[in-house]
């Protein structure tokens, strides 16, 4: 009996001692590896004029909202060549995620959706290994002047080929940014 109680008190002691020998070093910070912080759409006209559409959100899913900027108004009746950069700027140097997208082109597709009083035509200029559209490069042609929004959407694992609409493509939304656009 005595032996039994002494064994159990030793066990208790062992556990409480163990609790004291605690490690006070903070764990490693985790940098989000695949978070997309930045989307840069560069529209270049034949004249050489370049307009930059940018969305940047350095805390990813954190509470800060993305900052959306458009460097200039677009000119009416003009064709622009668009190219897209996707970056993770939580790491230094920034990680070019568009390279991964390009490598996995058959699992991705960009969509350009216009709204408001805009009259734009867009067309894909790059294609995946099965010749289905990808959209890191595209052309954008303005017609009459107007104001509205253009939404750039990136879908991961969409249905490919699809009918070109967001609802038809399905998949998972990796990027969805609404840019205010003025064509004058």
């Amino acid at each position: 009996m005595i032996k039994f109680l002494s064994i159990s008190s030793i066990l208790f002691l062992a556990l409480s001692l163990h609790s004291c020998s605690d490690d006070d070093t903070p764990p490693e910070q985790i940098n989000e590896e695949e978070v997309i912080t930045t989307l840069v759409v560069t529209l270049t006209a034949d004249s050489g004029q370049a307009i930059e559409l940018r969305s940047q959100d350095l805390d990813g899913e954190g509470p800060n909202e993305p900052e959306i900027t458009v460097s200039d108004n677009l000119a009416a009746n003009t064709m622009y060549v668009g190219s897209i950069q996707v970056l993770n700027q939580t790491v230094d140097p920034a990680e070019p995620i568009h390279e991964e997208i390009s490598e996995e082109s058959d699992e991705h597709q960009f969509f350009y959706t216009q709204g408001g009083n805009l009259d734009l035509n867009t067309a894909y200029l790059d294609f995946d290994s099965n010749d289905h559209p990808l959209g890191l490069a595209f052309s954008l042609t303005t017609n009459t002047a107007g104001q509205g929004t253009m939404t750039v959407t990136l879908r991961h694992e969409p249905l490919k080929p699809n009918d070109g609409t967001l609802s038809g493509a399905g998949g998972e939304t990796d990027i969805s940014v609404v840019f205010p656009i003025t064509v004058e």
Binding site: T38, L39, E61, P63, E65, P66, T153, T173, I175, S176
Partner: peptide, 9 residues
């Protein structure tokens, strides 16, 4: 609703 680069959550 939180606005992120991936749209609304």
């Amino acid at each position: 609703v939180q606005q992120t680069i991936r749209g609304n959550f």
